[in-house]
Design a protein around this nucleic acid. Sequence first.
DNA 1: CAGTGGTCTAGACCACCGG
DNA 2: CGGTGGTCTAGACCACTGC
Lengths: 244, 244
Amino acid sequence: MTETDRHLMLPIHEQISEALRTRIRSGDLPVGSRLPTETALMSQFGVARGTVRRALRTLNEQGIVQTLQGKGTYVRSGRPEPSIAQTLVGLSESLSYSEKSLTTTVLQQQIIPASGISRFPTPLEPAEQLLSLDRIRFLDGVPVARLKNWVRLQLAPGIDRTDFATTALFTALDSAATGQVSSGRRTFEAVLPGGDIAQSLGISTTTPLLFLTQVTYLDDGTVIEWSDVWMDSHHVTVAMNLTR
Amino acid sequence: MTETDRHLMLPIHEQISEALRTRIRSGDLPVGSRLPTETALMSQFGVARGTVRRALRTLNEQGIVQTLQGKGTYVRSGRPEPSIAQTLVGLSESLSYSEKSLTTTVLQQQIIPASGISRFPTPLEPAEQLLSLDRIRFLDGVPVARLKNWVRLQLAPGIDRTDFATTALFTALDSAATGQVSSGRRTFEAVLPGGDIAQSLGISTTTPLLFLTQVTYLDDGTVIEWSDVWMDSHHVTVAMNLTR
DNA sequence: CAGTGGTCTAGACCACCGG
DNA sequence: CGGTGGTCTAGACCACTGC
């Protein structure tokens, strides 16, 4: 195995869940249909039952299938959407299992003093340094989301040296943060985009956008990051699974 | 083992996760502390590693602990308050956190055949009867949301006799449903309202609205209800708490 | 009843973390 | 490097579903 191969190698259970997602999207496994039994999947993929179950668990968590004891695993109705909102993950993780390719362009990445911006979710010293990040997400080359993030540099030292075109913010936060990234709060609104947002997404200023604001906390309750995200509903939908 | 014992017998992994929850609550395992390693828990509880991992998975999903590869499993800080959108509740429950008064007007409430509508999240017989509900929600007298719901009458017999001006749909569903209302899926988009939606909310057709679609399932996976909701972001925002 | 998923065991090897 | 969790195997028995 070459070094390149090792980077591209996914765990077997992810390969299986991805293969099943593909079969579902292609219509090979239509909505409401039953997936092959776990035993059948074992032989189809040549793995042990635990690995099949690990793959099915992912699909259940993503709301793509539903497993019922004694009956089987069924394809859920509704087109499969990433469940963005249920757990604290970055947008790229949320969208990454779509069949489309997700790419990121960094418009701007710089260190600024807190006095340089107007909206904080928490009181800051004017001189405190923030990493300001401004990016566009593309799905198959089509701009679908504009993301602005602010990270408190003293709580994530060195994060400014990350290449955010290839590394997700949450991945970088996890390794750079001085504490554990543990919780967050998101709000959703519908807005009309300002001129620069509209231009960067290639839409008119009369196209409604889903506007998401997010604050991320360390486990001691400190705010470490906050962001504003505009998403074009024509291309990405925010979905979440709910339980009682 | 007696018959009673058998009913009370919980899976071992649940007994373990409950035991750990108790140790955390008691302060035996304080916030931020590391749990015993999986190997240590194996011998403490006399089970295989898979069982320990199944128990830790539950605690991770509940946001009580956080497991980090190569490091260990740590007790997380106290959980944020119940979030609006993370659990399956009706909109009235979600908005009642606000101090403003919430009222509802029923525009239409009638029984229609499935053939009378165009969009189902699940295949239906054309003759199947649906309760069709169309309502407006007011916050302090200002219209903020338009709600359209469809309920499969055969799965919630008698629900059509509910007074939905005073009773929340989910309350009625709970008592009328033939099964347990257990899960749901919501998606969010930003849209421009059609003329009737705009008019009912007293806004123009160029005001962007948050558009929420929801499907509600019984615990056997059957779709029992689905809905379309338009919300005016100027008056209500959807917020949710997230955990890792 | 046969078939399904849920639980559980007892191993093995690997990737990641920190000193 | 030793210790941690992540993955994976190859079995076993049980609880639930539907015929």
